[in-house]
Amino acid sequence: MHQSACTTAEAPETARARAQVVDAIRETAPGTSEERVADALLVVTELITNALRHGEGLSACTQKVQDGRLVLHVADHSDRLPVIPRRSDCQPFEGGYGWSIVQTIAERVSLRALPAGGKEICAVLSLA
């Protein structure tokens, strides 16, 4: 099992988390298709971007590959849960697709409140 983590003390960047995901997949599941790697990169990017834009900042992220699955944990400082915005066919709109993308690509997605405040999102993606 390969596992890596970053915290706010390390000033995580989306690029760093993406590199950690690729390293974890290549080391532990080297036969993973480029399509599955791209899906994993999209999900980690969306989760971190949402934490930075809507979650009052990223507090932690971990990635591990286990039993042919990538398990991502992304925590932020906000208690607000992600939502899919309602849209009108007549009004132009921008954004609001990230959470839908995560839910579509991931095998499972769960949320939990953190004891000190904030929340953690866990997304599990099949690498097969």
Rank of each mutant, 00 (worst) to 15 (best):
G117S: 05
A113E: 07
Q103C: 02
R18E: 09
R53W: 01
A9G: 04
S78M: 00
R112T: 12
A5P: 03
Q63Y: 10
G96F: 00
T49Q: 04
M1L: 15
L125D: 03
E13A: 14
L111S: 08
S4E: 12
R69L: 11
L70V: 02
A113H: 13
V109H: 09
E56S: 12
Q63N: 10
L52W: 11
H54V: 02
A75H: 07
A29C: 09
H77E: 00
D89T: 13
M1E: 11
G31E: 14
T28K: 07
S78A: 14
D76C: 11
V124W: 09
S59Y: 02
V109N: 08
H73S: 14
P92Q: 03
P115W: 01
G31V: 12
E94R: 13
R53N: 01
E35P: 00
V37M: 15
T45C: 00
L111P: 00
G31Q: 14
T45W: 00
I121H: 11
Q66D: 15
L70Y: 10
E34G: 07
C90F: 13
D23F: 10
I101T: 13
L70R: 07
T45F: 06
R26V: 14
T8H: 10
A51R: 04
A128I: 05
R18N: 07
I25K: 03
I105K: 12
L41S: 09
C61K: 11
L125W: 13
V22N: 06
T62G: 13
E120P: 04
V124I: 14
S88W: 10
D39Y: 11
A113P: 03
V74Y: 09
L52V: 09
V109T: 11
I101P: 01
S100R: 08
G96A: 11
C61M: 14
I25Q: 05
L81H: 13
Y97G: 15
H2F: 15
A17P: 05
R53P: 00
Q103W: 09
P30T: 06
V37A: 05
E13S: 15
V22T: 08
V44W: 05
L58D: 00
E34F: 14
T8K: 10
V22R: 14
G118F: 09
T49D: 09
I25F: 07
A113D: 06
I105L: 10
G31W: 12
S110W: 06
R108Q: 08
I84C: 03
A40N: 07
V71T: 12
V37T: 10
Q66R: 15
K119S: 01
Q63T: 06
A5N: 03
V21R: 13
